[in-house]
Design a protein around this nucleic acid. Structure first.
Lengths: 230, 230
DNA sequence: GCAAAAGTGTTTCTCATACACCCATGT
DNA sequence: ACATGGGTGTATGAGAAACACTTTTGC
């Protein structure tokens, strides 16, 4: 499950799969990206490989968020037909281990070997094939949970970003609004968000200061928070 | 991975597995509890079944925390020998989907059909077989992460508990100390921790008031916290 | 000069933290 | 009477939340 952000919205990367029922009848369905693992391949490597084939990118943030193996998950007629078409015995269950990837979608040229791939705003994703709506929901929940407590939002932004971009990102993902001044005060306390001596250029308004995220500083200054809830 | 708490410490439930190399030579190894799934069984049901066989308990808190499928995870000679002994082709990889269970270990009579099962304080677990030390670490991390933000600690306590028991539980699991007065003020704000008109009896000191946790009240009053970290 | 987004300060209230003594029970 | 854990209040500081105007740029 690939999340991309484009300065506007959080998007999901979808693949169109086409099924030839017969010479005259085909149907298509949108699904999440993904593929089978190789015989001797660790899960995370498989996730990274599939993502590389799709986007050409290396070293993308990847995180395992759950496994899906209900015996009934691919039992409807369409799913069964699909499994047969790829020579998978439809009686044998498919275990999917889900990873989500985070990236700046404006930096990506999609290139999955002729396959029909597209970004779709997460909120506007319709009915997907298989149990992929369920998997998407789980991925989104895992993303939000992680983002609440760890600084991974930067993975979705360009390396240099403005505070307004950062704020928009969090507003999008948490579907809420923050007060600009309070947001900035909060970020100012995070020493790992570092201001550059550099501003936007060519914008038709006061140019904003650019910032970078430093994982190094974060790791050094991170303080185990005990905002635990009993 | 079964976590139990006994008013003292957080424990892991371990099974002793015995391997007969030959008539004269056997070796034993401690491992986490677990078993294979059935052909047509959902993962969570399998976890619940294994747990029921072990403890006789139903409706125990269970949560999936990760999957382990590295091709090399069961490749050392001992693991290979073990796989052969249960008629599993040692060349075929084993995918483990990990769930952790939370329970009050004082309420459990272990009963795994003659197998050697025991509670061991999590901190004192030594070398386990297979990759189970790694899995335990992951389970513990998942438990801590979840406990930081959701009220699941109660699953480890008797239904009626004292605030001191609750505090000890959190101190154990987070390996820290809290100030008693501040802890109680914090709990007092959580409306879903409900005081009873009931006190401890037979204790050689001032008897403590008993409390219960109400998931219902929690679900109603839970407020999406935005203590997010950028 | 105007449209567009950047940037900034103060007040109020809640919560985290630090800290020390008296209380109720069983033996 | 004594040992054991139960139970309580106050002061300080940090951060969350609410709120409006000035600044810099491109056109």
């Amino acid at each position: 499950m690939v999340f991309g952000y484009d300065e506007m919205r959080l998007n999901a990367l979808l693949v169109k799969r086409t099924l030839n029922h017969s010479v005259t009848s085909t149907s298509t369905v949108w699904t999440l990206t993904g593929n089978h693992i190789y015989q001797e391949e660790p899960l995370e490597e498989a996730a990274a490989r599939v993502l590389r084939d799709l986007t050409g990118l290396e070293d993308v943030y990847l995180e395992q968020f759950g496994s899906f193996a209900d015996p009934a998950r691919l039992k409807n007629p369409k799913d069964q037909e699909w499994l047969r078409s790829i020579n998978h015995d439809p009686e044998r269950r498919v275990i999917t281990v889900g990873y989500f990837a985070l990236l700046d979608s404006t930096k990506v040229t999609l290139q999955w070997r002729g396959r029909d791939v597209e970004w779709k705003p997460v909120r506007e994703v319709g009915d997907l094939g298989f149990d992929h709506n369920h998997i998407l929901d789980q991925a989104l929940e895992a993303l939000r949970n992680k983002m609440r407590h760890e600084p991974i939002g930067f993975e979705l932004l360009p390396e240099k970003f403005t505070l307004t971009q950062l704020q928009n990102l969090y507003e999008q993902i948490f579907d809420t609004q923050f007060d600009k001044r309070n947001f900035r005060k909060k970020v100012a306390r995070m020493k790992y968000v570092i201001p550059l001596d550099e501003k936007q250029v060519g914008v038709p308004h006061k140019p904003a200061q650019l910032f970078v995220f430093s994982r190094e500083v974060y790791e050094k200054t991170r303080t185990e928070l005990f905002d635990f809830i009993v």
